[in-house]
Each structure stands twice: as structure tokens, then as C-alpha cells.
Design a protein around this nucleic acid. Structure first.
Lengths: 144, 144
DNA sequence: CGGTATCCTTGGAGATACTG
DNA sequence: CAGTATCTCCAAGGATACCG
């Protein structure tokens, strides 16, 4: 038995992994996680979710100010895709000048919670990863 | 007070989000989560972690067989990057023909657990997202 | 077997200009 | 203000051929 066998919340890791790896369509290689990453794993989606989660409700240009490096185009594109997936709601006020407000839907908020779990992992293990990289560099140099 | 204010494990969502958004270097816009996605958010990293987690230990070509669509090049490249970050260990046996075995490090296993949490979210909310997309399509057609 | 090295294609994303 | 519409460019990644 060389396999991982951690018990977690009553269900074996084994089963959980199998569930995640399960393919939607035969031969597609597309498991749930893969799908997931295709939609939210891009450069900006998560940042938008975090900022909306933090502020609660933001207008287009407010969001743009907070995510300094994002281009107007990518903000629009990413917001549309998040809206499409039901994570973000978009409310247009028929005023002049126009006003548009974005906020997380309940689904978006549930993703937000998940993201913070991830963020914590990243924070906790950042040092470990940095150290691993250093070691790797060393070993590479040693070979030459 | 229009901000989200969910309590979770004793710490307010507020604080957690702030922590995740915290920038490493001033003005870089690079928070921990962003860093994280840059390294593991690509097309193949997570799949490799899942498969290694499931099998425990795999040789190069075994891994390639399981992830059908991956090219040899990308398998090599991704494995190197995972090795660099200390998530995967690589063991070379000085035999002929050569044998190389990959498996998760403890750090890799901790990431694996996190991934399954994500996978579960994806599975649980897949329907909801599909439905949201349909609704969005409808609304778009209605406009035209 | 387990890779490198090289070439080539594609689509993700920035810059810029225009609009309801 | 909050977007579209183009043009453009670069690098992620596939195909192929070779190597220890």
C-alpha cells in the first residue's frame, strides 16, 4: 500500500480524489476541477471576487482603481464572464451620467469563502515554497 | 454598512479577505493569492497533483498515460516547476533503461487536500453555474 | 525510458480610439 | 461613466526530431 490514505472529515482522501478526477464526458479529460480552473483560474477573476467581497458593492471605475494594473478591456471581459457564471450581479441605474454597480451573488460569496481558505494556504506556505526554490537552485548549480 | 460580514471559524470574513489581498511588495498588486495562481493555476499543475495524490507514486510515462491530452513537453515543464516549488519529489534510479519516479512531498499533499475541497465546491455548484449561464443567454437574446 | 532542443501556431491580453 | 471595437504583440503550449 503505497497510496495516500489520509482520513479527513470522515471520508477517505482516496474517494475524494476519485470524485474530483471523475470525467464529465468520456475521454474529454475534463474533470470538475479542470473546468473550474478554466473559468476562474485566469489572471483577474479571483482578484475581482476578492475586491467585491471586501467592498460589498463597487462601480466600474472604483473597481478599476483598486485593481491598478488591469486594463479597461480585461475588467469588462472578466466581469462579463463572472456575471455569466452567476457569481457577480450587475445593476444599471438609468441616470446620466450612467451608474453601474457590481456585487457578489450568494454563489459568488460562497466562492469568496473558498478563496480565503486558499489565500491562507498561500500565506502559510509561502516561506516553505521560497525555501524549496532556493534549494532547487543550489542543486542545479551544483550539477554544472 | 453594505459590506459582507460573515463570521467564520471565529475570524470575520473581513479580516481574512484583507489578509489575502495584502500586497507583498508595495504597488506590485501581487497578493498571495495572485502569486498562487501564477504558479498552480495553469492548465496542468493541478491535474498532476491530483493524479500523483491518487496513485501515490508514478513514473513519467505512467503519468502521461493518465493525463491523455498532455504533451511530453508540458509534462516535463510542469513537473519541473512543481519540483522547484517543493510540491513534487523526483527520484532517479541509475538503471538501464532509466526509471524516474515522481510523488508528492508533504507540502504537495497539503495542497492536494485543498484541491479536493475545491473539487467539491466545483461539483456542488456545477448545476447552479450551468443554470446561470442559460439565464444569461436568455437575457442576451431578449435584448436583440 | 525519459527526457532536450527547436520550430511554429494561436489566443490572451495590452494600447488606443471611438460611443450611448 | 461605462463601456465597445480594432489592431497588435508576445509567450504559452503543441508538433516534431533528436539524445544519454
Amino acid at each position: 500500500m503505497e497510496r495516500t490514505n489520509i482520513e479527513y472529515q470522515g471520508v477517505s482522501m482516496e474517494k475524494k480524489i476519485e470524485k474530483v478526477l471523475e470525467e464529465k464526458e468520456e475521454g474529454s479529460g475534463a474533470c470538475a476541477l479542470h473546468e473550474f480552473l478554466n473559468h476562474f483560474g485566469d489572471k483577474w477573476s479571483m482578484l475581482i471576487v476578492l475586491h467585491l467581497g471586501h467592498a460589498g458593492k463597487l462601480r466600474f471605475n472604483e473597481l478599476k482603481k483598486r485593481i491598478q494594473l488591469i486594463s479597461q478591456r480585461m475588467l469588462t471581459v472578466t466581469l462579463r464572464s463572472l456575471e455569466m457564471d452567476g457569481l457577480v450581479s450587475r445593476k444599471v441605474y438609468a441616470e446620466i451620467p450612467p451608474r453601474v454597480e457590481y456585487q457578489l451573488t450568494p454563489l459568488g460569496k460562497s466562492l469568496l469563502e473558498l478563496m480565503t481558505v486558499f489565500g491562507e494556504w498561500a500565506n502559510q506556505h509561502a516561506d516553505e515554497i521560497m525555501e524549496a526554490r532556493k534549494q532547487f537552485q543550489k542543486r542545479q548549480k551544483a550539477k554544472k
